[in-house]
Design a binder for these strands. Sequence first.
DNA 1: TAATTTTTGTTAGCCTAGCTAAGTGACTTC
DNA 2: GAAGTCACTTAGCTAGGCTAACAAAAATTA
Lengths: 147, 147
Amino acid sequence: MVFRLYYLVRRESAQLLTLTQGSVLSELVGRGPSRMSRLSRLERVRMPSMTDVVRRLERLGMVTRRPDPEDGRAVLVEATPEGERFYAEMIAGREAELRARLDRLDPAERAAIDAALPALTKLIADFHRDDPAAELAVTSEGGTDPR
Amino acid sequence: MVFRLYYLVRRESAQLLTLTQGSVLSELVGRGPSRMSRLSRLERVRMPSMTDVVRRLERLGMVTRRPDPEDGRAVLVEATPEGERFYAEMIAGREAELRARLDRLDPAERAAIDAALPALTKLIADFHRDDPAAELAVTSEGGTDPR
DNA sequence: TAATTTTTGTTAGCCTAGCTAAGTGACTTC
DNA sequence: GAAGTCACTTAGCTAGGCTAACAAAAATTA
């Protein structure tokens, strides 16, 4: 079921950025500049894969890359103003979409979903607990944050 | 949130088949032989993409392809016995994994998730309603079917 | 201090999942 | 029976993953 919902929400919104790109941009917008290694850990992807993702985001003008002044090996990736603007719009679109769907449910059904959110969040946290790269944000999502 | 849960369940199980392959195999095991066109509609993918997916499943021995006796243009794809066996194991693995996680929640939390399932199912159906290829199985999932 | 090892990235080369455009052959329809 | 439509496949593109191999900087250790 989760698989289906994932598929569907994804298909409706976010047609311009892929899921991975969106996720990386989200991190950069929400938490500021980050190294490649951190991004790849967060996304659970190897560094070469992240190199490509960042290269594409850079080409789209969403992100810039500069050397880390504190460590000559490292690279700092940062969202551009365009990246921030775009991200805000993307989230707003997704949110609107999902909210419209939710509005078509009965109040009781919405209440049931809302009531299940803490448990679902905990379930997610449980998955993360097993994870070596445990830094991850289980983004606080009360209400019905569509992320 | 849905995105996260998707990511995580997927990462844990189903390492041998990709998501799309699993989904196609699921359809073939559950409903019997199918034409390419139907599979591509179900997966919401263009036919050329499905051609590739089936080719790979075929190479893995999960599936066979034969001409449709009723229509010389069409192709019937069918799960092999190996495909069926493999699928059963995959589902069992996923189910076990998710069930183990669920067991770590409080009874009240499990109850909340269970109570939300009908509403979530309806939400999914609502997404599908907009869809031109509406044939889709909103697989009946009482209890906690991990699909 | 110098030599060695570890860390951070990148490049190269491979696979899978999508797509569009352009074919081919088999049914339908007029 | 000619024209059109339908079910696929092939070719060629983009994106997201991977491993292996390498370069350069930083950290260790001799």
